[in-house]
Amino acid sequence: MKLAGAVCVLAGAVWGWRCQALERRRKRDTLADLIRLLGRMGEEIRLRRTSLPRLLHQLAADRGPACRSFCEAAAGAMDRGEPLESGWRLAAEALPLAAEDRSALLALGESLHGDEEHICKAIELARGLLAESLEETRSRRAETERRAAALWLSAGALVVITLI
């Protein structure tokens, strides 16, 4: 009975660790997708001057679920005639991102009023910040995973010991 209980607690710890790992992975994938999205946005604005709502609708098609929702929500707000910043902010807040990554994206939303040069610079700046953040996350990934695994397993073991 005790053994079964211990196995259940440890399985719960592994499940918790796995969920967290998946969430971290989702954040990394979203960040990478967002960087690609901003790259395409900059190119399309510079080369084709496609209007922003149309561009976001177009780009949504090739994105992962989180970025697709972001593009569609931001474009939808513009289709409804809402102010650009508020639509962009609401869409950005729904993205699974770290606080500093989200604030870089929000700052971009405030710079989308300008001319081509201004917007492209703002996009490049936001893209650069997000790319740095992704690079840092990737370089810390092995260590983060090790720590998280150790934490969850230790917590599970502690619960087992306490219960026994």
Binding site: T50, P83, L84, L112
Partner: peptide
């Protein structure tokens, strides 16, 4: 001022960069 910004956004379909020549 925010009303005028919104007017410009709505008039240019949120794309002032596409209206640079006339702007």
């Amino acid at each position: 001022p925010a009303d005028l910004e919104t007017l410009c956004d709505l008039a240019t379909d949120y794309s002032r960069y596409a209206a640079a020549e006339t702007l």
